[in-house]
Amino acid sequence: MASQGTKRSYEQMETDGERQNATEIRASVGKMIDGIGRFYIQMCTELKLSDYEGRLIQNSLTIERMVLSAFDERRNKYLEEHPSAGKDPKKTGGPIYKRVDRKWMRELVLYDKEEIRRIWRQANNGDDATAGLTHMMIWHSNLNDTTYQRTRALVRTGMDPRMCSLMQGSTLPRRSGAAGAAVKGVGTMVMELIRMIKRGINDRNFWRGENGRKTRSAYERMCNILKGKFQTAAQRAMMDQVRESRNPGNAEIEDLIFLARSALILRGSVAHKSCLPACVYGPAVASGYDFEKEGYSLVGIDPFKLLQNSQVYSLIRPNENPAHKSQLVWMACNSAAFEDLRVLSFIRGTKVSPRGKLSTRGVQIASNENMDAMESSTLELRSRYWAIRTRSGGNTNQQRASAGQISVQPAFSVQRNLPFDKPTIMAAFTGNTEGRTSDMRAEIIRMMEGAKPEEMSFQGRGVFELSDERAANPIVPSFDMSNEGSYFFGDNAEEYDN
């Protein structure tokens, strides 16, 4: 993207840094990872977990959730003011799984939030270390993106479920800051804005008074975040219109849905970061690795190297396929839920299948599930090659597409044709070009129609051997075009429920 120079890199967003050079960025990201790792080690000690239990991804998720809940100030305040039966607002906890007599047992633990905050700050040299908290939120978000298709949420806001490739980060909490905003897809931002506008339509006082002023500035800020994701002048001009509207209503909703559809071809720039579970960072720190000293990046080879040398386990339900569970977590670790499966298959070195073909449910185990038949197995999170994460949407291309997802959002900077089903997408653009945004709409449609099938995206960008740390010898991959490109292809993934 041309304006790259004016933006802070995501590592800076990730670490609240002012302008830093590459070495400083690597050190501050490393410091953040160190903090998460030290916190995780301490929690495993508190909970008396064995090494194996500490490497269980379900335990990692519970521990991450506990610290996120302990620092969720708004919710904590709300819980104190609106006490609900049987919930102690000062405590947080969740299921911890232990191996007892050759069987997995679930144990519900409860801790004072104050105590968890103390352990977290102690692991982070006394700081609140917001960057580390956001990092864990993005890992949870990436896992949700890989596990669930947001059909219901899309339909509720009037969008087409086939636009799911635009929904990265749709389950990120509001408090995820600049680093969170960077990884949100165009569809996620559109959905947040539509929800806001709908509230304004239904509630006369939404934009009024002292609160209304705050609401208005939040609305304009979200519009600017979305505008910054678009790469064409016409899309940005249309966002200006939406932002400046005196009284946002149905016309703005129409414009936003139009823009979301246009992003299936004229893709937005959305950041991709490899955020790993805390149970990967903990053992690495415990083994003596100093992330701050060595430096770390979320968008280069580092996460690949770390996963190459990590042992992570997962509980497996009786009829689940461990290899499929591994694929789910591998995609989440690489922030690749909406990437082209052919690119992923090449990088991973084994075939990556669409969601609907995987015999696996989510990673988390519900409290009512029976533990008797639970097994555990090693997650295979290694890769054959590594590639640089991208934040450009890439230019655009036609490809055989599917009944489910009709476009992709690249996660890796790797040369390819970008699949999208042009006739299906263009069919949504018939007729409606009147109104105050008509010239911009016409211009956007013209650009979409001009998108050429034979153009290559990320020209000359390749993948790298894991021994090639400096990215000196790019390998331009070859793809098996007979395979499906979309992950949520004609899909039956479970729906995400809060």
Rank of each mutant, 00 (worst) to 15 (best):
H272C: 00
N211A: 14
K293R: 13
I194R: 11
R213I: 08
E369M: 10
M374T: 10
E454Q: 14
A251Q: 03
R118H: 09
R121A: 07
Y148Q: 05
T147Q: 12
G35W: 08
L61R: 02
R361C: 02
A401L: 00
K91A: 05
V299Q: 05
K184G: 12
M13C: 11
E320M: 11
G282T: 08
A131L: 02
R441L: 05
E114D: 14
Q459F: 03
H324C: 02
I41V: 11
Y10W: 00
L379D: 02
T171D: 14
K91P: 04
L133W: 02
L315T: 11
R446V: 13
L259Q: 07
A337G: 13
E114G: 08
N417V: 10
E465H: 00
L68V: 03
I201Y: 01
G209K: 09
D160P: 05
R355K: 14
Q415V: 12
T15A: 00
D127Q: 14
V109T: 09
S69E: 07
Y97S: 05
M167A: 05
E73Q: 10
N202T: 13
A284T: 08
Q327I: 11
Q122P: 09
F304V: 15
R150H: 08
Y281Q: 12
D145R: 07
A271W: 05
E115H: 07
V343I: 15
K452F: 14
I425S: 02
K422L: 12
K48W: 04
R246T: 10
G268T: 14
A286P: 04
V280M: 15
N483C: 01
K103N: 15
Q308N: 15
E380L: 01
D468L: 01
G462W: 01
Y289F: 12
I265D: 02
T62R: 08
E46W: 08
F346V: 11
R361Q: 11
A284W: 14
N395A: 14
P318F: 13
A85W: 01
S141W: 07
D128H: 15
M222D: 02
S353D: 02
S407R: 11
S50T: 12
G282D: 11
I388P: 06
C164M: 12
S438G: 15
K273E: 05
D372Q: 10
E454G: 14
W330D: 15
E375D: 15
E380C: 11
G93K: 07
G177K: 03
E107R: 04
E11M: 12
C333A: 14
I197C: 11
L298F: 12
V186R: 03
R175P: 07
A427Q: 12
S467I: 13
E380Y: 10
G460D: 00
L154T: 03
L418T: 08
G177T: 04
F291H: 13
T350Q: 07
P303V: 12
H82S: 12
F230V: 05
Y10Q: 09
R382D: 03
L341F: 07
V352Y: 13
R382S: 06
K48M: 14
Q409P: 00
G228C: 04
G300K: 06
N76S: 04
A153E: 06
R204A: 08
S438L: 01
F39D: 02
L108T: 12
K113N: 09
L276C: 13
N370I: 05
K273W: 02
W207I: 02
L306R: 15
E64D: 13
N247L: 01
T188P: 05
R121P: 01
F458K: 00
G187W: 07
I425F: 00
C164H: 01
M13I: 12
F346N: 10
M196Q: 13
Y385D: 13
P423K: 15
R19N: 06
Y219P: 02
L259T: 04
Q42Y: 08
S383F: 01
R65Y: 02
V183P: 04
N211W: 11
L47M: 11
S262V: 13
S28C: 11
G169F: 06
P277K: 04
S297N: 02
M137Q: 08
V190S: 11
R221E: 14
E339P: 06
L259M: 14
I25N: 00
L418Y: 00
L79V: 12
D497W: 01
G132M: 11
R267N: 07
G169A: 14
M447H: 14
I96Q: 04
F338Q: 15
N319H: 15
E53T: 11
L47P: 14
F258E: 09
R461S: 05
F230H: 09
I445M: 00
K452R: 14
R152D: 02
I445A: 14
A337E: 01
F489Q: 03
A337F: 07
L266T: 13
G295M: 09
V109C: 15
A323C: 13
G490H: 06
E320F: 07
I25C: 00
R208G: 03
R65H: 05
L266R: 12
I444R: 07
A323T: 08
G37K: 05
A251T: 06
A2Y: 01
M238L: 15
G180M: 09
R391E: 05
Y111L: 09
A129S: 12
S245R: 03
G200D: 05
L306A: 13
H135T: 06
L381M: 14
D145Y: 06
F258H: 09
E494K: 14
L133P: 05
G404T: 12
S287Q: 10
A27R: 14
A218N: 04
G187K: 09
T134R: 02
V414I: 12
M371N: 03
E449A: 07
R243P: 02
L358C: 09
V270T: 12
D88G: 07
K87Q: 06
M189W: 10
T232I: 12
K422F: 12
M1G: 07
E53C: 09
A237H: 14
D203A: 09
P423W: 01
W207K: 01
E220A: 09
A182T: 10
G288L: 06
K325R: 08
A337W: 08
G435E: 11
N76M: 13
S467V: 11
V414D: 00
V329F: 11
H82L: 05
G228T: 14
L341K: 09
G93M: 12
T215K: 14
V329D: 11
T146W: 02
A427W: 02
S287T: 14
D34C: 14
T134E: 08
R461E: 12
F479E: 00
Q168D: 04
D340F: 10
F206A: 08
L47C: 12
R382V: 06
S359K: 04
P477N: 02
S245F: 03
C44N: 13
P322Y: 06
M167P: 02
Y97R: 11
Q231F: 02
G435K: 02
D491T: 02
G394L: 00
A366I: 06
V186H: 15
I197S: 12
N492H: 07
N144S: 04
G460F: 02
E220M: 12
S245C: 12
S9P: 00
G200S: 08
M447T: 08
Y148H: 09
L328P: 05
V100P: 14
A284R: 15
G450F: 10
Y385Q: 05
R213M: 08
S176D: 02
K48Q: 15
R416Y: 02
R26A: 13
N368A: 06
Y219V: 03
D127A: 14
T433E: 09
V280A: 07
E114S: 03
A493T: 15
T433C: 09
L49H: 03
R106W: 10
G94S: 05
Q168E: 04
C275I: 14
N417R: 15
M136T: 06
G177Q: 04
S482Y: 02
I406G: 01
L154K: 09
A271P: 08
E434D: 01
N76F: 01
R102V: 02
T424L: 15
G490Q: 04
N59A: 09
K48T: 14
L193M: 15
P173K: 14
K351F: 15
V100D: 03
S326P: 04
R102E: 03
F304S: 02
E292W: 13
E380N: 10
G209I: 01
D72K: 07
M167H: 08
E53N: 06
S392I: 12
L172V: 09
T390R: 04
S269L: 03
G404I: 04
K103H: 14
N321A: 09
N76Y: 03
K7Q: 04
L108M: 10
T130Q: 08
R74N: 06
H324V: 05
N397R: 15
S84Q: 05
G249R: 12
V190I: 12
P89I: 04
W330P: 03
R389Y: 06
N224D: 10
K113G: 00
P161H: 00
R436I: 05
